[in-house]
Amino acid sequence: MKKITLSLFTLLFTSVFFGQTYSTGTLVLNSNNGTNLNYSAKIDVTSALITLTLIGPSTGWLGIGFDNTTMGDSGDVVIFDGTNLTDRTFNGFSAPTLDAQQDWTVTSNTVSGGVRTVVGTRARDTGDANDYVFSASAQSLNIIYARKVADFTISYHGSNSCGSILANVTLGNDNFKIEDFKLYPNPSKGFTNIELPVNIESGVVKLYDALGRVVKNQAISRNDNQINTSELTAGTYILVLRTEYGNATKTLLIN
């Protein structure tokens, strides 16, 4: 019985852990002087995999560098050359050199109305010293980017065709719903507990009576989640949970 319980726990833990996706969301990329490049990027991170989406002109190469602040850094860069997402390394301001180990796989490459959308994947940690290792959690990430409109020759991109941005990689909203928080016991007899969804560590609970008055305002956390209702009269209340990921509402009955 213990082995079955342990196996079930391991399975549940693994499915939750490996199901988490962290994302930059869609990053609209502008040049250093603010000119729109008609270029965007999105980076999705799981514990095992990186998914990179680049959207830009279909007539030239598209490039993005991870954990770099300038193109003079000696850091990881990926360039779509018309066919492949090529793994490269900056070596000053000259064209980035190809890595001996190529880790990106193009999974989708479509063109519509002169706009290319290319999607590729690689391991989060490739084991290659030239590749940036993404954290499997929320993080801030310095990104540099450039694109060339005219051709696919990996050379100077031209003025107003590059820039840098500080991206915030946060937990993707598709991993949980704030409405999934649990409220028990309900009806309440003296107290009720709030079970927060996976990855939400804290929030604020507001309890409203039938007249819309706030009768309880309490901060909660995963380890301190009990609401004392013993001083409230019997009836129906609206409980609002406020978190950094949004708000959710449930009805609480008090006997």
Rank of each mutant, 00 (worst) to 15 (best):
A150D: 05
F152Y: 02
F152R: 10
F152M: 04
I154A: 04
S155D: 13
Y156N: 13
G158M: 04
S159L: 03
S161K: 11
C162H: 03
G163F: 02
S164Y: 05
S164N: 06
I165R: 01
L166D: 04
L166W: 01
A167G: 02
N168V: 07
V169G: 08
T170G: 11
T170P: 03
L171K: 07
L171F: 15
G172Y: 15
G172V: 00
N173D: 04
N173H: 15
N173V: 12
D174H: 15
K177Y: 09
K177H: 11
I178A: 01
I178E: 02
L183T: 01
Y184F: 04
Y184S: 05
Y184V: 06
Y184G: 04
P185F: 00
N186A: 06
N186P: 05
S188R: 01
S188Q: 03
S188E: 04
S188M: 01
K189W: 02
G190L: 14
G190P: 03
F191Y: 13
F191M: 11
T192N: 03
N193L: 11
N193G: 08
I194G: 05
E195G: 10
L196Y: 02
N199I: 15
E201A: 14
S202K: 15
S202M: 15
G203P: 14
G203S: 06
V204C: 10
V204P: 13
V204M: 12
V204Y: 12
Y208M: 01
Y208H: 04
D209N: 03
L211Y: 08
L211S: 12
L211F: 10
